[in-house]
Design a protein around this nucleic acid. Structure first.
Lengths: 340, 340
DNA sequence: AATAGCACTCCGGTCGATAGAGTGCCAGCT
DNA sequence: AGCTGGCACTCTATCGACCGGAGTGCTATT
């Protein structure tokens, strides 16, 4: 690929990102002085079209970059202003408060993403892997209720109110609590279930009903894998590319479904560190040819905790969005890494 | 108001709900045989327009009901088929499972609302009133961490991991836990804060840092009042009234803001029992003239737990939607009332 | 190899005419 | 007196034609 071609591709992309319109040879020659006449530019553009990097929507409409064209731009042509990176880093640090509550923290992060990019921000929260039980505690609440608290290896806490057998005294409860903790700690949920079944068969402890409730709990699904938080979806509606209702609809269907988005997110989590960009059809999200997704993992205490990023029109200023996502992910990682 | 006028108003509304178009005298006379010529209908319609119940978008476009017209219809003319009510009641009972987890339960409820009406379902969750502490438990997790669990009067559980002073033994922790529970139970959060400050001043228990963390917790805001859950927003995009992007945008802005919607919801919670309908401008939501909101409170253990309902186009079949919302609210109330 | 010129294509907006739908009013009928 | 049929009028939505603008591809020229 000749240098001139690269240069022209870059300029076409930039003009396209600015205007959203297909750009013709004349406007390009006026927009930036590259010592070439429109005719020469036309030739180069025709070459780029043959290479599959540009395309024209119709005969007389200039050209706009294809997905591959944008990809080439992002990978090889684009330079991120280090100043900008610095600025966003500072902006993120000042706007966000290091909340204790992880949900609130991530909520803030999506909002910051949305407001900096003016696209839709999204954050996925990885369900912590509940591989085995670290601790079980039964706390007497009232004469009818017991609070059962289970702490997982990941430090995740689940609690539930269970009905209390009237005959169960507080001290007896403490005993049970202790023995259950011994019995079950370091067990996987599967084992917990099995052991509880065995205990129930013996009916040794005369707390059948309590165990029943706990068993039911252990059996209940881990409530739907990862969850997704969004912010600023409605900002997308300002963009002219979402002027037709069908595009908007498929976009918001994806927001609701989450299924497909989670698949994409999983991909990011299993790849190496850093910001990932999915342009147009590169993410396999149906009917969303016109949007790009920019994602980055965030981490804490050594493991991947989730993914965050933005969804915006394919025509976004990647040189702005990438550092924003990067800074936000770093910041969240820093807070979560130090805090827990 | 003459009987004929009522009848014609009713028919205009029905036709309008079906087609979404302004309805003229001729089509009305063909649609339903009321033994009247188009001319007579015209006269009646002119009267109704003078009364402010109908209006015509322009000279030759037939008439459609105004907000007041729809209001009159809903209040006085509409009859809800009891069979329908029965059917929805059954449908709701069979589709929804009585989950233990309230969040999941309500999530299901919104989805059911959305799927039955094919509009957007929404549920507000009242933040339980955390007026005073019922119980505090400190559970040792590891050598560095303690799990603090606070149970409120409302049976709501909050927990947090706090850092542990290395010198704190397990048995000592149990002691502290007990004395804290005695010290703080039945205190409001405000009192908890004050007492903790006093204890810290004394530094009596040599657990300054632990108390500090607890204090910080007591001071943290009750995390944003009520929360809102939505489902099926994208279904609204199918409706022709949301063909223009501006309408959609203001709608989704409202979904994100929640502020205004919560105001409406509060209104419902403070009024008497039953399904409430807000037609067009009746809810004071800006730029949402074209939507109606149907809401009903749900209750449990004697107090209002929240509100649920749907948001849809003003042109909705109220005689279908009202029973749906009613049945769902009743069902949720029943489950929550018996379960907690 | 780059450029200038030219013929050609296609899109988008404007204009005008037309068909359709509906109203209001009036005169006549029951 | 009230209903009805008829008629003139109004407004909108749609369709086709037209035209200017923008852009390309090709070719001849420097």
């Amino acid at each position: 690929m000749k240098e001139r071609h690269e240069f022209i591709l870059g300029e076409v992309v930039k003009a396209y990102l600015d205007t959203g319109q297909a750009v013709g040879s004349r406007v390009l020659s006026e927009r930036v002085d590259l010592g070439l006449s429109p005719a020469s530019i036309r030739n180069a553009m025709a070459d780029l079209e043959r290479m599959g990097l540009l395309c024209s929507p119709h005969t007389s409409a200039g050209r706009k970059p294809t997905d591959s064209g944008l990809r080439y731009f992002v990978d090889s042509l684009m330079v991120v202003d280090p100043d900008l990176h610095e600025r966003f880093s500072a902006s993120v640090s000042t706007h966000l408060r290091a909340e204790r509550d992880i949900k609130q923290l991530l909520q803030q992060a999506t909002e910051e993403l949305a407001s900096l990019t003016s696209f839709a921000g999204l954050v996925s929260v990885h369900e912590p892997d509940f591989r085995h039980v670290r601790k079980i505690e039964l706390v007497p609440i009232s004469s009818e209720q017991i609070l059962a608290v289970i702490v997982s290896n990941a430090g995740e806490v689940q609690n539930r109110l269970v009905r209390r057998d009237a005959q169960l005294s507080d001290s007896r409860l403490t005993d049970i609590s202790r023995s259950l903790s011994e019995l079950l700690s370091h067990c996987s949920l599967e084992e917990v279930r099995n052991r509880l079944v065995r205990e129930m068969d013996h009916d040794r402890l005369r707390i059948r009903q309590l165990l029943g409730e706990l068993k039911q709990w252990a059996e209940s699904p881990t409530e739907g894998k990862s969850s997704l938080i969004f912010s600023g979806q409605s900002q997308l509606l300002k963009m002219p590319e979402f002027g037709v209702i069908e595009t908007v609809r498929s976009l918001f269907l994806a927001f609701e479904d989450k299924e497909e988005l989670l698949r994409l997110i999983e991909q990011v989590e299993h790849s190496e560190h850093g910001v990932k960009v999915f342009i147009g059809r590169e993410h396999a999200l149906v009917d969303m040819d016109e949007v790009s997704v920019v994602l980055s993992r965030y981490e804490g205490e050594g493991r991947v905790l989730g993914t965050l990023g933005v969804i915006g029109p394919k025509r976004m200023h990647y040189d702005r969005v990438l550092p924003i996502v990067d800074c936000t992910a770093r910041w969240v990682s820093r807070v979560l890494g130090g805090n827990r």
